[in-house]
Write a protein that binds this DNA or RNA. Structure first.
Lengths: 206, 206
DNA sequence: GTCTATAGATGGATAGAC
DNA sequence: GTCTATCCATCTATAGAC
């Protein structure tokens, strides 16, 4: 039952739509463009998915479920907290290096139609409370500094995601003429973010 | 010479266009909408600015020059490094609290037409090298930990800006049902980011 | 300078043949 | 299921009266 014979028309459409929507966004994408990418014509898009909106929703909902789950489980394993955070950052940056358009796309769409986003996101029932509890236990145990665990999460996501979402600006701001160095900078952040975070929150063993 | 008599048509248009473009973006904004907001009709928009693109560029270029300069000067004053970083974060978050739509707008537009952005941005000649030099001096003096100053800058901007740009998602992710607490969370980050950064980079006085 | 009216282009959606 | 042809709404842009 493992996704055999994936080259039927519906899958071709979904694959093409995903590519185009992520690159151009809902408003920027053209149905003709998606049809071309899929090697079919516009009418077929409407035959399989009634409207552009419906097609977009299919892509977007699928993307949301794809992004979150894998990474959070890692934070709930029984490794030491330093190692868990280090691995989280590495995995997350690796994912972003493989999907560099994703951050800008998601940010654009959640701000364009935040009502729709909130509805679909709430359905996913993603719950970080287990992670927050874990962090608070580490604070009680004196392993990390006492602070709002939501700030840890926000800072981690911010430092990982923002440099991808703001790439056209940050690469010029940080490197000027030599902005081709930016991709290497992103790669190196797997270790620099880790150092930055651990230096901030890990307490010395007594 | 101080911008007297600001209520001529051109200024009304610019003000209206700024509001609408920031809220809807270049692609989402409608010329009719801007005309309504300005209390005039569509044709006048084209009389003053030849095209939607030209009107957008006027707004966008103006915004870029407005955002950057004030804040960087602060980092070059002769206060202690801890104080400079603390003030930078406070000022920056305050600016974002007053312009909450700005981050999502800028990120959307620099990714939509990054060629245009790179051209206009390069003209601004914003140069962070003086700031990087200052940070490196502080490292040499043993005041802060040795690291790539670009990571400091990237992390600062990320932690300040990202929670605004990703608000529709982060508020649900961090607070779930109680997401009305998010605005207070943003406000408090003026001090929590400061603690987070200083704990990471400031070295103890020997 | 400001308006109404309309041209012209684009793009989502549908009808209907095969 | 897949195609071509076309409809129709939307939106930028312009013509022309005042």
């Amino acid at each position: 039952m493992n996704e055999i014979k994936k080259d039927n028309t519906e899958d071709k459409i979904l694959k093409a739509a995903k590519t185009i929507f992520i690159r151009k966004g809902m408003e920027g994408a053209r149905m003709q463009e998606i049809a071309d990418e899929a090697g079919i014509n516009k009418a077929l898009l409407h035959y399989y998915f009634r409207s552009k909106q419906k097609l977009f929703e299919a892509i977007f909902v699928n993307l949301l479920t794809q992004i979150f789950p894998n990474i959070t489980t890692l934070l709930l394993s029984d490794k030491p907290i330093e190692e868990k955070i280090g691995l989280f950052i590495e995995k997350y940056i690796d994912m972003l290096l493989q999907n560099p358009y994703l951050p800008a796309f998601v940010l654009k769409e959640i701000n364009r139609d935040s009502d729709f986003f909130e509805k679909t996101f709430s359905n996913r029932k993603i719950d970080l409370n287990l992670i927050f509890n874990m962090l608070e236990k580490e604070m009680e145990a004196g392993n990390i500094r006492k602070m709002n665990p939501r700030d840890i999460m926000a800072n981690l996501l911010a430092m990982c995601i923002f440099p991808f979402a703001a790439k056209p600006m940050l690469k010029l701001l940080l490197f000027g003429e030599n902005h081709q160095q930016y991709d290497q900078f992103l790669e190196e952040r797997k270790s620099t973010i880790k150092e930055f975070v651990l230096n901030s929150i890990v307490l010395p063993k007594s």
